[in-house]
Amino acid sequence: MTNQKHLLIFILTLGVFGILNTEMGVIGILPSLAEHFDVSISQAGWLVSLFAIGVAVSGPTMPLLFSGINRKKVMLLVLGVFVAGNVVSVWAPTFTVALLARVIPAFFHPVYCSLAFTVAANSVTEEEAPKAVSKVFIGVSAGMVVGVPIASFMASAFSLQMAMIFFAVVNGMVFLATLLFVPSMPVEGRLSYGAQLSIVKKPITWISAAAVLLLNSAVFGVYSYFAEYLKAVTHMSPNPISFLLFLYGGANMVGNVLAGKLLTKHAIKWVGSFPFALGGVYLALFLLGPFSQPMVVITLIWGILAGMGGNLNQYLMTSAAPEAPDFANGLFLSSTNVGTTLGAAAGGFFITGMGTSYVVIAGFLSILLSFAVLTLRKDRFAPTRKLPG
């Protein structure tokens, strides 16, 4: 049974990697896509932004609609949609077709990810649930960070089509692994749509969603411009910048593992201290940004904290509504995507008005607001109660 659980969590982690890789990997080949479809780079950017909008819109609804269906069948459906979308993207005759091949799978993105978090948590004891979820989050971090350089490398070393085929192959492998090794998972004790929707009547649900939005905004409001910061403030050349971006991504995965342990044993202390820790990193970033050696240490610590933050956000949302985990995970995904969008906009605002080094102000403002929101939570982050199915 233990080996089966490990295999299940591994497949879920790989599945989340494949889906996040499809979403974020395109960033590494945007210039090639713009040239291929003869569109501007800003137009090609819609391949990223419309995907994120699709996730944000469908996050609260799609997991709810599929909540009563056998979870293995739902995962196979979503993975099949992603494989089909990837294949169409490889040979898309026009930019419009490529855009549709991206947007349609985006609406199914929250279904798989919310299921992956829920199934991972329910596959172990209640005490071990944060650790299981943290392992799935490794796939999230890898998909967000590793997919970009891999796709960029394949496009430059082979062809644009090979980079797109890479997305399809990863999702296809997970589809086969799910089909062959994941057991049937019928939903037991299914909650009605009304019962699940009732969590929106609870103030703690909205407080938690606001906290997740602001905490994600605090991270991505600064990280979205990290490469530009290293270039303009630290005066680094492209190779050291690439190294620090990889370091940040690797540190993210370390943070995922550490978060699982901290949320298992010290959830209340960790949630309360996170804004202060992130604020300390941004203060160091602002004061020591021009110096390359301190930036290596800052990047490492920042990456670890950012990886922990993803797990913390998911914990906040599901602990607020343990009676409807799929719907709560959908709200988590929507809140994080909206937070990323707003954070990036805020960071851009301060860069335009004050200069690149002042992008940290966007992070500080989100941190202060998130701390204020977190103090409103009356349950003090009660542990998530597991449900059958």
Rank of each mutant, 00 (worst) to 15 (best):
Q4Y: 02
Q4W: 13
F10I: 01
V16A: 02
T22F: 03
E23K: 03
E23S: 02
G25P: 06
A34I: 07
I41F: 11
L47K: 08
L47A: 04
F51A: 02
I53G: 06
V55M: 01
S58R: 07
T61R: 05
F66G: 08
G68I: 03
N70C: 13
G80N: 10
F95Q: 11
I104W: 09
T118D: 12
A120E: 05
E127Y: 08
A132I: 01
K135D: 06
G139D: 15
V140L: 13
S141T: 15
A155N: 07
S156T: 12
S156N: 09
A157E: 07
A163M: 14
A168Y: 00
V174E: 02
F181N: 00
M185H: 09
L191I: 06
Y193M: 13
Q196S: 02
K201R: 15
A218I: 05
A218P: 05
V219L: 09
F220W: 11
Y223F: 11
L230I: 07
T234N: 12
P240N: 14
F246P: 00
Y248F: 15
L262T: 01
K265Q: 15
H266P: 12
A267Q: 12
W270H: 10
G272V: 10
G272D: 10
F276K: 12
A277Y: 11
G280W: 15
Y282D: 13
Y282M: 13
S292C: 01
Q293F: 12
M295L: 04
I304N: 05
A306H: 03
A321I: 09
E323V: 06
D326C: 00
F332C: 09
L333M: 15
V338G: 07
V338S: 06
T340N: 13
L342R: 05
A344P: 08
G348E: 04
S357E: 15
I361S: 04
F371K: 15
R377Q: 08
P383Y: 09
T384L: 02
T384N: 00
